Amino acid sequence: MSAEQHPVLEVENLAVEYRRGRRRTRAVENVSFDIADGETLGLVGESGSGKSTIGKAILGLAPVTEGIIRYRGTDVSSLTRAQRRALTRDVQVIFQDPHSSLDPTKPIGYSIAEPVQIHEPAPKAVVRERVYEMLCRVGLSEDAAQRFPAQFSGGQKQRIAIARALILAPKLVVCDEPVSALDLSIQAEVINLMAELQRETGASYLFISHDLSIVHYLSDRIVVLKGGHVVERGSAEEIYRDPQQDYTRLLLDAAPVPDPVVQARRTAAREKAGLSARTDAIASSIR
């Protein structure tokens, strides 16, 4: 099979184990999935389900205890630092917190240009034009390149983080709770931007979130995690419209409804199950 026929990403029987002294904790156990070209796979579950650990394992930020992670058919589970750095040309990440992901001492034009300078060195004027073009694509003006992170709102900072992640036209972007730190009014704008840029670039997304309504909107397929295990998988429509597992139904019940009696019943059911309630009114703002 040629490289072009391989999925962008294959995760096979992945297990991630953390060690603290003599204590060992399995955060992820026997997880498998793949992502095709231009596809978005949603990885959804409550806090502690293992979803962010999987993202970190793909990025080389968490140990792979068992299983294999393949990019374009090549095992990337145990790369050297130099090999991992080379892989970032094709695999990028958008983190949850845009505040901590930007260097406060550097203008944002520097941060966006850095991946280009590492992987595709070019004259300063060429790099500058690429930065300006990327800023425009995420809805910011060219003069933003000379400003510092503290001069931007949270939503603007996440747009900057997206610009930096996509400036190299990566094949795969790991999106680890990329909107959960933002106000609801800003979340919809950023989600719509990510969907638009994906249509333009053809990148594949691994979209990690606890919010099933957002995951449903962006994803082609969904994998539901609980306690480090896959409990349900299927197309986004199948999972959203006809979930087969009680846990998935409880995640769906987090969405508010106009009937206060029904909403109270849903909240009580989630609390009884030990799941935290969270408003996802953002769903009505996503186009």
Rank of each mutant, 00 (worst) to 15 (best):
L251N: 13
V261E: 14
A264S: 13
L252A: 07
P115T: 08
G60P: 15
L184P: 14
H229D: 05
E46T: 12
L212Q: 12
G202F: 11
R24F: 07
P107A: 09
R72H: 09
I35N: 03
A122F: 01
A36I: 05
G48W: 01
G21Y: 05
D259L: 12
A203R: 10
R128W: 03
I186E: 07
H6V: 07
V231G: 04
I160Q: 08
G50P: 01
L41N: 04
V8W: 06
G67H: 13
S52D: 03
D97I: 02
R287M: 03
Q263A: 14
H229V: 04
Q187W: 06
S111T: 12
P260F: 10
I118S: 12
R159D: 06
V31E: 02
G67S: 12
R287N: 03
R70T: 06
A254R: 15
E196Q: 14
E12H: 15
P121Q: 02
A264M: 10
A169D: 08
I208D: 00
E142L: 07
S285V: 03
T88P: 03
A163K: 11
L184Y: 05
R26G: 00
D246H: 05
K272S: 09
T267L: 15
A145W: 13
T40D: 05
A113F: 05
R85I: 06
C175P: 00
R270V: 09
D37T: 14
R81Y: 05
F148Q: 08
L61G: 14
E238L: 02
R233Y: 04
L212K: 10
G73M: 14
I282R: 03
L87Y: 03
S77V: 07
Q158Y: 07
L87R: 13
T88C: 09
D176C: 03
A203L: 08
A161N: 13
G234R: 00
A203V: 14
G73T: 09
L197E: 06
S49V: 06
V76R: 14
A163M: 07
E114Q: 11
V224C: 08
L184T: 14
L9F: 10
V174D: 00
A144R: 09
Y110R: 14
I108R: 11
M1S: 13
G228H: 01
Q198N: 07
H99I: 11
L252F: 08
L61D: 10
D97G: 02
E196I: 01
V231Q: 03
D246Y: 01
E120V: 04
A125K: 06
Q146T: 15
V174T: 00
L79Y: 03
E66N: 12
R221P: 06
S2H: 10
E10A: 06
P243H: 00
P243F: 02
T80P: 08
G234M: 02
M1Y: 11
Q92A: 11
R20I: 15
I208V: 12
